[in-house]
Structures are given as C-alpha cells and as structure tokens.
C-alpha cells in the first residue's frame, strides 16, 4: 500500500550512466506533498534524465526513486495513474485531433466522465476553438496548451513539467502559470518543474534545486538563494552557479 506520510518524491543517491557519461551522479532530494519545486540547470545538467527516472521511463544505474511511497520503476503501476508529465519536446500524434488525443490519454488513465473532463479542460485552457483540429496543425503556443491539458487530464497528485511555458507569448505564459498555481492549490498536487525561465521559477517555486553536470549544486528557497549569493534575480544566481562563481562569492562573504 502507498504510504501517506512519505514524501511525494524521494530520490536517494540516484545515478545514471550512459556508456562513459555520468548523466546523473548520486543526487538525493525529497519533495514534500503539495510543494512546487524548480529544477534548474544548463543543457546536459541531468534534469530531463532525472525526470525520466522519476517517471520510470529510464532505469537508474544505481540509487532509488520513490513516488508517493512506491519504488520506481518496480512498483510503477501503483502510482502511474496518480502522475502525469508534460514536455513541449514530446509530441502527440499529429494526425489526431486535440479531442481524439485527449480521449486516448483520458482512457489510458481511466478518467471517469471523460467527455465532461475534456470540456472542462477546454474551457479552462481555452482550447474550444481548435478542439477538432489535427494537433499537427496547431501553433507552438496552442500545442503547449494542449500538452498541458493532457498533463492535467487525470488531475494528477504528482505533476512533472519540463519547460511548461516554452513557445508561449508572455501573456499566455503568465496565464498558464496562474492556472498551474491554481491547480496545485486546489488539488494539493506536488509539482516538479524543470525550466530555463528564471522569472517563472521565482514566481511559482517555493524551492529550487540547481543541477550542474549531474550533481546538485545548490538546493534552497529562491529568497535564501538570492541572499546567499548576494544577487537581485535568480538568473544571476543561475549564472554564478553555471560559471562556477557561486562558491567564490559565498567564500568571499
């Protein structure tokens, strides 16, 4: 049975080696239920591999991942229906209409009253006008909204997001962030958000994990990171960590 008091996501000494490359090198963290955490890092830092191991899509070389108390990927069938994942880099079948895609994913997750759920999501995410259009013929922004609808179709308790506002104009991106905040508050969901948009992370996340070359370089609240690094924005903190200036600056202080 799933343990109600365990963290939503618990990662312990997680390692992933691809031939000679250590994509993820012994990271550990635990996310409280109902929290929203930002996973930051440059290209090749290991964010996507970490998310893939949490979803059970990639087998870790060593270490453990637990989602809602279930060991991944061994016990994934106990929790997969409680999770969802969104990435604009993972395409849905282009020929299927938005409604058909949502129907397929809704059935995969055994969503009750699927028609009603799709209608509600279409209202919330403003998809109604292109619900019967093939997904391949949508603009990048529309595709991102559809991907978000797919991620929310089963009202997940654990939501993993990879660049959720990529390709969106500032107004729509802001609206999506508001929607995510509202969803998290109402559902009490745990959200892990990988993003390069520092303003987004600053606004949404109560905790930030910064990765670099497979390691966790820093892990704290955005406010405490700004104070510790003596910076005004999270982007400056990110650049300090990426360029290896973080330790020097902290030591100088």
């Amino acid at each position: 049975m799933l343990n109600a008091v365990e963290p939503a996501i618990a990662v312990d000494q997680l390692v992933k080696v691809y031939k000679t490359t250590r994509a993820v090198d012994g990271i550990s963290f635990a996310l409280e239920r109902g929290s929203i955490t930002g996973l930051l890092g440059g290209n090749g830092a290991g964010k996507t591999t970490t998310i893939a191991m949490i979803t059970g899509l990639v087998m870790p070389t060593s270490g453990t991942v637990k989602v809602l108390g279930a060991a991944m990927p061994r016990q994934r069938y106990q929790v997969l229906h409680e999770m969802n994942f969104e990435s604009p880099h993972v395409d849905m079948p282009h020929r299927l209409t938005v409604r058909q895609n949502l129907k397929v994913f809704g059935r995969l997750y055994a969503v009750e009253d699927l028609g009603g759920r799709i209608a509600a999501l279409a209202r919330e995410l403003d998809l109604s006008e292109f619900l019967d259009r093939p997904t391949g013929k949508l603009s990048a922004g529309q595709k991102t909204r559809v991907a978000l609808a797919k991620a929310l179709i089963n009202s997940p308790r654990v939501l993993l997001l990879d660049e959720p506002t990529a390709s969106l104009d500032p107004d729509t991106a802001d609206w999506v962030r508001g929607h995510l905040e509202r969803f998290r508050r109402e559902r009490g969901a745990t959200v892990l958000l990988a993003s390069h948009n520092m303003a987004e992370v600053e606004r949404l996340c109560e905790r930030v994990i910064i990765m670099k070359r497979g390691h966790i370089e820093d892990d704290d609240t955005p406010q405490r990171l700004l104070v510790r690094y003596g910076r005004q924005t999270l982007e400056e903190v990110f650049l300090d960590v990426a360029r290896g200036r973080g330790e020097t600056r902290e030591a100088a202080q």
Partner: peptide, 15 residues
C-alpha cells in the same frame, strides 16, 4: 489493464 489496451486500440483506429 483493459482500459490501457482499449486506449491504444482507439489511438490506432483514429490514426
């Protein structure tokens, strides 16, 4: 899980 199998069948029918 029959619902997962049904979902995949539906996907191919739509395709």
């Amino acid at each position: 899980a029959p619902h997962r199998i049904a979902a995949m069948v539906l996907r191919y029918v739509y395709l």
